[in-house]
């Protein structure tokens, strides 16, 4: 069977199979940008590890941030099966030639933001990622299966932390509401531009990379999340939000904000990149030392001496 026959029959493409160059390039870009998002996503939450309100919350947050690193690594490995080097991908992130999700360019100004990220940002990520477990490229689909299993802990711990705040003192309720106000719209933007403004979607659908359109997934997220906000007794910051037939209708997204953040001018773009590049450079001596040690172990003189 050739490539399109396999895809049309809902089969999986594996690393050394013949594939169109466009398919390979699209996947490298998408998987790499997904991986970059995971590791940049460690920053806004890592910001609160030292100030988590209890040891329990701290242990949970450390585990979550470690998972994000793990997700990045699963994804970089999947991208590498397409014949690109890890170092090239890191370089493209560090020089701004590949992007990451706009959501991580917003600051975490208080503890409630960490709770809101788990609930909304990881909730939106799950909505996006579950269909990717059936993506036509085998290594990406398998990485997504692992990621999705772990994300559901992320979303639940966030919702639980929101519940604690929402049922706490008036000041804690206010914190929870303000966090929802800050994160609601950026979370909706995570599904990407509207279908009318998403030129590559049709091709990705034909290739079996994408299963549902941006707007379909966004609608699912709104439908799933509004009742959760009601359960918390919080108000979704959208005056146009209303139940209509089988779905929630919601107001217009501020696409100017989305494109501003995407182009590098969000509240934290420069800070996130500076931190990432610094972490990479500061870690260079560790990589060099590990490589030198490995080379030494291999050299015949050392083996003889030992």
């Amino acid at each position: 069977m050739d490539f399109q026959e396999i895809v049309d029959a809902d089969g999986r493409i594996e690393p050394r199979d013949d594939m169109p160059e466009g398919y390979r390039k699209t996947l490298i870009r998408q998987i790499a940008q997904h991986a970059h998002s995971e590791i940049i996503g460690m920053q806004p939450e890592g910001n609160w590890i030292t100030r988590a309100p209890s040891l329990r919350r701290k242990a949970i947050l450390v585990a979550k941030v470690q998972d994000e690193a793990g997700h990045g690594l699963y994804l970089y490995s999947a991208a590498e099966t397409l014949g690109v080097e890890r170092s090239e991908l890191m370089d493209m992130l560090h020089t701004g030639r590949q992007k990451y999700s706009t959501i991580f360019n917003y600051p975490t100004t208080c503890w409630a933001d960490v709770a809101a990220i788990g609930w909304l940002v990881d909730g939106a990520a799950i909505m996006n990622q579950v269909p990717l477990t059936r993506c036509s490229y085998g290594p990406y689909a398998r990485a997504m299966t692992r990621v999705c299993k772990e994300e559901s802990f992320h979303q639940r711990q966030g919702f639980e932390a929101m519940m604690v705040l929402a049922s706490g003192t008036p000041a804690q309720r206010t914190m929870a509401q303000e966090a929802l106000d800050r994160w609601w719209w950026p979370a909706l933007m995570m599904f990407g531009p509207s279908d009318t403004d998403s030129p590559n979607s049709a091709q990705s659908m034909a290739w079996g990379i994408k299963r549902f359109s941006n707007d379909e997934l966004r609608q699912r997220f709104v439908d799933a999340t509004v009742p959760q906000a009601e359960h918390l007794g919080l108000t979704v910051p959208d005056p146009d939000l209303r139940w209509e037939g089988e779905h929630y209708r919601f107001g217009e997204i501020d696409w100017d904000e989305f494109f501003t953040v995407m182009k590098g001018n969000g509240p934290c773009n420069r800070q996130r990149m500076a931190h990432r590049v610094a972490a990479h450079e500061d870690g260079a001596w560790v990589r060099e030392a590990a490589a030198a040690y490995a080379a030494k172990q291999k050299s015949p003189t050392v083996t003889a001496a030992a």
Binding site: A63, Q66, D67, G70, L73, Y74, S77, A78, E80, T81, R86, R142, A143, R146, E150, R287, A290, A291, Y293, A294, Q297
Partner: peptide
Amino acid sequence: VGSLHAADAHLALRNARDLYTRR
């Protein structure tokens, strides 16, 4: 289960423990 980068076998085993068996 997947792949990873490491300078030598010992580090590869450690990284595999952290990456693929956290649960």
